[in-house]
Design a protein around this nucleic acid. Structure first.
Length: 697
RNA sequence: GGACCUGUGGUGCAGCAUGGAGUGCACGCCGGCCUGUCAAGCCGGAGGCCGCGGGUUCAAAUCCCGUCAGGUCCGCCA
């Protein structure tokens, strides 16, 4: 990775504002930047001049090249100590480890405290009048002399806080109008304004810092993958619409009336064609375009993937490469901790134990399976009849759940019902000190039942709808399986075992508890592989079998499995990499065998002709010798969200569209001229009566 | 396609459940004072279609309906 960019002196500047140190005292310097703050005392004017956001590492090191200070230690800041003020001639004053000594390297970029210097001007200066009239965020080039600040005015918050620049001249390079919002780091600004004036938002720092992180991320990924023998290949942005998947962005063709290009939803087919072309290992930081509704973690319009494909590879080969890549990225870009190799959980297990196919493994709180324990063995019909109805019984402990209001349990019941299951609960009053962990002490005795003996001996009595219906032994089994104890609650959910349906409402509660109770360590990255996805799933509306994921995935067991197993039993060589409850990517061992492909598509109701018609390039390519291959495509934006703890994907993108896929800065999308439409053979049909009366922005 | 939250001087918010004069707060802006501040301070001032349109009411920022804009979620994202 390139070294720090040296500052080449020119007519605007010969130093960066943030680089000035006591070692520079006495030097004449020329600085350029933004007016970040003004403190006008009438007879004395202070101006904070701020550097542009520059490449990551250059601020502290640049001082070495420019300064002549002998023991200057440019990367450290000597703290102003009240007893021994910094002497102008001794830059080697003891460096204090205290808070004032900022580690300039990592924080330099975008932190206003690290890239600002104070200018001082008196009314006698010719520059005074000009400068005092300038508004904040005007851009100036100034000259002056670096002087020591009087000891009592040293500002330990600034990297340059021991010095200031005695102003000699000012050249106004660009004067700023009244700002739409403060360009100051801490102020709270609405996102609409930030998107509309993205360049001002960038100047504020944190966003620019995330872009710097993104740049390093991409550079590290490139270097790492190249060193592992992956060839970076760019694939077309104008391609053909594919019949499967998300809605396409279309580009009308001028030359061919009525025909359209499509922007790729992913370079999926191209990368497989590269495999057929004998490119052994491919990668690309690839733009993907999908015209779908957005979410906080899903950008409308375009997003980026580290697209990877490997020939002569199996699942294990992909896993190894991704773990190496992620290891590189996490260790170089983050202080968070991850465990390698990533644990694996099957799709079926993930659903059963976590109620989701993207489990957050930073905490336990697993969903317990109770079908064998309670099914058919209790008088409660919901549980008793579960096995014969093909239902499963699942349960989840709620730490401290006894404190929760009735409405919270009711809401869970509603959620379960909505999912097609039945939820119920019991709660355990806090123990009275004899430390019972609630594991089956009162086996065999009835629960509170008809309200007879309270305080009967073995710990507090449970309450809630289940408490009245289950025997003490059954309650004990419930507690043992879930690990619940005094003061906790237990949620149960019963429903069709297929697809672990009763786990899903419990999984939603589990995820919510993880957030509410702070169960997850914030500095942990709990990666995992979710493997063994089903190849097909039944369409609930039509009853037909659909591909549950990528139709080009190789079925486990190959042709034989397709012919001998029921579609619902067939697994695919399909995997997800998940971190902290976030799906980062899907991948698969691809199906490169035309006869297997034909059979696989037939189960989903596709004829051979339809495959040929829909995917002619791949279909043909696989008839001329294609290697077995596998790949994956981790999302750049989502990975950065995780590394940077950002709740919203727009925070890691320089110029994002808003939720409604509108670019508030550029004004896209926008109408085009009648001439442009005519050239493209297009006519606009406005929806609804009277069209949409939306004014252009 | 659906649900919910939000919309009040340039910015960020309070006010709204229980209608009674745009009463506010912080920042910014304009003017004045001010030689050691660092988010400078002090004094004064300007700036509002309370998103927009309807309705209820003697009276609407406040209640109701619609609509537009921003956000979050469900559907969707092979």
């Amino acid at each position: 990775m390139g070294g720090p960019a040296p500052l080449v002196p020119n007519r605007y500047r010969d130093r960066r504002c943030g680089s000035l140190r006591p070692a520079d005292i006495g030097q004449q310097v020329r600085l350029a930047g933004w007016v970040a703050a003004k403190r006008d005392h009438g007879g004395l004017l202070f101006v904070d001049l701020r550097d542009p956001v520059g490449p990551d590492a250059d601020l502290p090191l640049e001082a070495t090249s420019a300064s002549t200070g002998p023991a200057g230690a440019p990367g450290t800041v000597a703290q102003a100590s009240p007893t021994s003020p910094a002497s102008p001639t001794s830059p080697a004053s003891p460096t204090s480890p205290a808070s004032a000594a900022r580690p300039l390297g990592p924080l330099a970029r975008g932190d206003h405290h690290a890239c600002t210097v104070q200018l001082v001007s008196h009314p006698s200066d010719p520059a005074f009048e000009v400068l005092s009239r300038l508004r904040l965020e005007s851009v100036v080039s100034v000259t002056g002399e670096v002087v020591a600040r009087p000891p009592e005015t040293v500002n330990p918050k600034l990297a340059t806080g021991e010095v200031e620049v005695r102003l000699a001249s000012v050249e106004v390079l660009s004067s700023a109008g009244v700002l739409p919002f403060p360009v100051e780091q801490e102020s709270d600004v609405g996102e609409e304004a930030r998107l509309t004036y993205r360049y001002l938002d960038l100047r504020r720092g944190p966003l620019a810092q995330r872009l710097a992180k993104r740049a390093r991320f991409c550079q590290l990924a490139r270097n790492h993958l190249a060193s592992r023998g992956f060839l970076e290949v760019q694939t077309p942005v104008l391609t053909v619409s594919s019949p499967e998947g998300a809605r396409d962005y279309l580009v009308p063709s001028r030359l061919y009336p009525g025909e359209f290009y499509a922007l790729p939803q992913a370079p999926q087919q191209f990368k497989q064609l590269l495999m057929a072309g004998g490119i052994e290992r491919y990668f690309q930081i690839a733009p993907c375009f999908r015209d779908e509704a957005s979410r906080a973690d899903r950008s409308p319009g375009e997003f980026y993937q580290i697209d990877i494909e490997m020939a002569f590879a199996e699942q294990e080969d992909v896993f190894r490469e991704v773990e190496l890549l992620f290891g590189e990225l996490v260790s170089k870009l983050s202080t968070k901790v991850a465990t390698f190799p990533f644990p694996r959980v099957s799709y079926a297990d993930a659903l059963a134990r976590y109620g989701t196919d993207k489990p957050d493994l930073r905490f336990g709180l697993e969903i317990a399976e109770l079908t064998q324990v309670l099914g058919g063995r209790t008088e409660l019909p919901m549980f008793a009849e579960a096995p014969e109805r093909g239902h499963a019984i699942r349960a989840l402990a709620v730490p401290g759940g006894n404190e929760r209001p009735r409405s919270w349990f009711d809401a869970f019941g509603d959620a379960a019902k909505q999912a097609g299951a039945t939820g119920s609960w019991l709660a355990l009053p806090p123990g009275d000190g004899d430390g019972g962990r609630g594991t089956g002490d009162a086996a065999g005795t009835r629960g509170t039942g008809d309200g007879g003996g309270k305080e009967g001996g073995g710990g507090p009595e449970p309450r809630g709808p289940l408490a009245r219906k289950l025997t003490g032994g059954e309650v004990a089994a419930l507690l043992e399986a879930t690990g619940a104890g005094p003061g906790d609650a237990v949620l149960t959910c019963v429903g069709p075992a297929a697809g672990s349906l009763p786990s899903i409402p419990l999984g939603q509660v589990r995820a919510a508890l993880g957030r509410e109770l702070g169960l997850a360590r914030p500095d942990q990255l709990a990666f995992c592989w979710v493997v063994d996805f089903p190849m097909y799933e039944r369409n609930p509306d039509t009853g037909a079998w659909d591909f549950s994921h990528n139709p080009f995935s190789m079925p486990q067991g190959g042709l034989e499995a397709l012919e001998s197993k029921g579609p619902g039993e067939i697994l695919a060589w399909q995997y997800d990499v998940v971190c902290n409850g976030v799906e980062l990517s899907s991948g698969a061992v691809r199906n490169h065998l035309p006869d297997v492909m034909e059979k696989a598509f037939a189960i989903a109701g596709y004829s051979r002709e339809r495959i040929e018609r829909s995917f002619p390039a791949l279909w043909n390519a696989f008839h001329y010798g294609a290697p077995p291959h596998a790949g994956i495509a981790p999302g750049v934006d989502r990975l950065l969200m995780l590394l940077e703890d950002q709740p919203n994907i727009r925070e890691v993108i320089a110029f994002p569209l808003n939720q409604m896929a509108r670019d508030l800065l550029m004004g896209a999308p926008a109408p085009v001229s009648a001439a442009q439409l005519a050239e493209l053979h297009l006519q606009v049909v406005r929806p609804g009566p009277g069209g949409d009366g939306r004014p252009p922005r």
